[in-house]
Computed example of a mutant assay.
Amino acid sequence: MKTQHKLNQEQYQDKSEAYLHSSVHAEGQEFGKMRMLIQQHKLKNILDLGCGGGHVTYQIAAYADQVIAYDLTPEMVKLVQQQSKQKNFSHVIGQVGSAEQLAFDAATFDCIISRYSAHHWQNVGQAMLEMNRVLKQHGKIIIFDILGHSNPVFDSFLQSIEMIRDPSHVRDYSLQEWTHFAEYAGFRIETIEKQHVALNFQHWVQRMQTPIEAINTIRYLQQAVSDEVRKYYQIQDDGSFTSEALYLVLSKN
């Protein structure tokens, strides 16, 4: 039986290099916010949850005593270990596992960062409870992810093209949903900020090795939707578009 976790592993097992070299993943104003928070609160033991190509790890490693690069896909973890070694980050440790079952003792981390990962998780509520368990008192959670929408018209379009591009996609959650997850897990919300992420269509589908028939379906949807949807996502003639992203900081009191 193919589980959601197995589907995720299959989708990403041969894409580590693509994500390492993706400008969308390697760049972003959120990195500066992360570094500032880490330095301000002297957060030294950090979990990069759903590390992917490792860009969070590379950005914050110089400010931490230890970083655990944690991902469901072994190939991603191996890549981050190799890159960290080349960058002389000897305090970066790679570990394979799921967000819903964190293989760490209670109160292990000062900070947990998850960037562009949560939309693949099988059960965000369970993952948030696990994050609370392994986070120290007064620790910080930083989540950055593509933001869903409370308007069903906008949301249905986004979820549809995401899943057609990548069948392991679960959901881009709305701000209301993230607020619910945070409160459910017992976190206090400190910061809510929105950013816009411009996505080059050709790079977006190439990175995932999306089949041509799926690409054609996405382009059909982009052309068939209302002007309201096209304007909201700033859909260009070549298929490139813009999504909203959420920068969320939570604390454990």
Rank of each mutant, 00 (worst) to 15 (best):
A107H: 07
Q101A: 12
D110E: 08
Y116K: 05
A107M: 04
A106I: 00
N123G: 15
D110F: 07
A99I: 04
Q122G: 12
A99R: 02
R115C: 14
Q101R: 09
A107W: 05
Q126G: 06
R115S: 13
E100L: 09
G97N: 13
D105W: 05
I112M: 04
C111E: 08
R115F: 15
C111K: 01
C111G: 07
Q122V: 14
A107L: 06
W121T: 04
A107P: 02
Q101S: 11
H119V: 11
D105T: 01
A103V: 01
Q126T: 03
A118Q: 13
D110R: 00
F104G: 08
F104R: 01
Q122W: 10
A118T: 14
G97I: 10
H119E: 13
F109C: 06
I112N: 08
N123T: 11
C111Y: 08
D110V: 03
C111T: 03
W121I: 05
I113D: 12
A107G: 03
Q101G: 09
F104I: 00
H120K: 10
S117C: 09
G125H: 06
A107S: 06
I112G: 07
G125W: 04
Y116A: 08
Q126C: 05
A103Q: 02
I112R: 03
D110G: 00
A99L: 04
C111I: 03
E100G: 04
I112F: 08
Y116Q: 13
R115H: 12
C111Q: 03
S114N: 12
L102S: 02
A118C: 15
I112P: 04
